[in-house]
């Protein structure tokens, strides 16, 4: 198992500034599934729809689900609403 720290932004800050998840691999797809499980354990399954529309980033790079995380931390970015 790989431990990944997930930094929260936007509406995900309602569950804190960040949390750790254990994933069987460091693919973005696996991290997304682990975050969905974490939301369920936190009693925040209501955020799953937002999670489906969210993108993960490592540093200043946006990641697609087939990509692999090189480090041990990602950010989860919900739909953006600047302006």
């Amino acid at each position: 198992m790989t431990q990944i720290h997930v930094h929260c932004l936007g509406v995900f800050r309602e569950i804190g500034d960040g949390f750790d998840v254990d994933t069987p691999s460091n693919s973005v797809d696996a991290i997304r599934r682990a975050v969905a499980e974490h939301l369920m354990h936190m009693g925040r399954s209501d955020l799953n729809d937002v999670l489906k529309r969210s993108v993960f980033a490592e540093g200043d790079e946006l990641l697609k689900d087939h990509m692999v995380v090189e480090g041990s931390a990602v950010s989860v970015l919900p739909p953006v609403a600047g302006g």
């Binding site: 529309r53 993108v55 946006l62 970015l77 739909p79 953006v80 609403a81 600047g82």
Partner: peptide, 8 residues
């Protein structure tokens, strides 16, 4: 929190 545009 306000909804917005997905970057996905």
């Amino acid at each position: 929190w306000l909804d917005g545009y997905s970057l996905r």
